[in-house]
């Protein structure tokens, strides 16, 4: 048995009750994450990236959303259907979460300091004063100037980048082993995005934690990740080490995605490559290959689910004959 994985997800299925019936937003997703590594999940909106991540920490919107099947193993412990006590001790403590929109994720009527110390007081056996002292240190570590004063600010008094720094401080306050970052820089400007990405890398190196980074930006993936999972329509179509994925994408969807980004090196005003069509609506997903569905291919590949398998060491692929 190799080194035990920090996080091992197997056959995860998450679903939502809707008026149109049960929809499976995540449909059999498996991946692992080792200590200190960064795994990126990339895909278009609605492909199930966020739902996969939120399933891990049991933060799906309730009662509509729930995990239907599969296993979530974190540090050897099963988190799926775990005792609420276990989840309480894990979330915010051993697993930190950064949400996309800091303005909606932070409490607008609470001071920043209180929001950071909340998790500390819950998980660590320390006094309020110590917690506040620690919060100041954290704000300093995430690059907020004059943290002693900022600690008594409300979120609206901070800029977008500063708010995201506060989110990071909250996520890191208990020294987690795993950080889940859901589109941490999507709402930010490029110059601020660069600051936040650098900060995340620095924190990760210092603390040796693993990061699950969810983004739709392949530039961010290329810069931050060791390994990448490409999701399409609730499933993983390809998983590979980052350099291999960008150098030799194997699945037609990954290829299309990489080809359609406008790059600074492109010749100007030339036609961009596109992926024809659009993602089918979730109620209409076929059991077979969903990228074939988008490409309007006919035949067997639509009926039977392609196998998801390791095709080379470290490279996993949904082996649809038409797409690979």
């Amino acid at each position: 048995m190799p080194v035990s994985k920090l996080l091992k997800i197997e056959g995860l299925e998450s679903c939502f009750d809707t008026e149109g019936g049960l929809v499976r937003a995540v449909d059999g997703v498996s991946f692992e994450l080792e200590k200190g590594q960064t795994l990126g999940i990339v895909g278009e909106s609605g492909c199930g990236k966020t739902v996969s991540a939120m399933s891990i920490v049991d933060l799906l919107p309730k009662p509509a959303g729930r995990v239907l099947g599969g296993s979530i193993n974190f540090k050897g412990q099963e988190l799926r259907d775990a005792n609420p006590e276990v989840m309480y001790k894990t979330r915010g403590n051993e697993i930190g979460v950064i949400f996309q929109e800091p303005m909606t994720a932070l409490n607008p009527v609470q001071r920043v300091g209180k929001q950071i110390t909340e998790a500390l007081l819950l998980h660590k056996d320390i006094s309020k004063r110590e917690a506040l002292q620690h919060a100041v240190e954290l704000l300093d570590a995430v690059g907020i100037p004059s943290p002693e004063r900022r600690i008594s600010d409300h979120p609206h008094e901070l800029s977008g980048g500063m708010r995201q720094r506060v989110m990071i401080a909250i996520a890191l306050c208990c020294d987690p082993d795993l950080l889940i970052a859901d589109e941490p820089t999507t709402a930010l400007d490029v110059t601020v995005q660069a600051q936040i990405l650098d900060l995340m890398s620095k924190m990760q190196k210092e603390r040796g934690m693993a990061t699950l980074l969810i983004t739709h930006d392949l530039g961010v993936i290329a810069e931050q990740c060791d390994e990448v999972v490409v999701m399409y329509a609730g499933r993983i179509v390809e998983r590979a080490p980052v350099k291999e994925l960008f150098a030799k994408p194997k699945h037609a969807y990954t290829k299309g995605l990489l080809a359609s980004i406008p790059r600074l090196t492109n010749e100007r005003k030339t036609e961009l490559r596109t992926i024809p069509g659009q993602v089918a609506s979730i109620q209409e997903f076929v059991e077979g290959c969903r990228f074939c569905q988008r490409m309007e291919r006919k035949g067997d590949t639509l009926n039977t689910r392609p196998r998801y398998e390791e095709v080379e060491p470290g490279r996993f692929l949904e082996s649809c004959p038409a797409c690979t």
């Binding site: 660069a194 930006d217 810069e223 960008f246």
Partner: peptide
């Protein structure tokens, strides 16, 4: 210059070299 160098290149073999500019608008 800062704006251009802050764009993450969709290429893992290229590393962003310059330090991001600090502060906010």
């Amino acid at each position: 210059k800062a704006l251009i160098s802050a764009i993450p290149e969709p290429d893992p073999t290229v590393k962003r070299v310059s330090k991001p500019i600090e502060g906010d608008v």
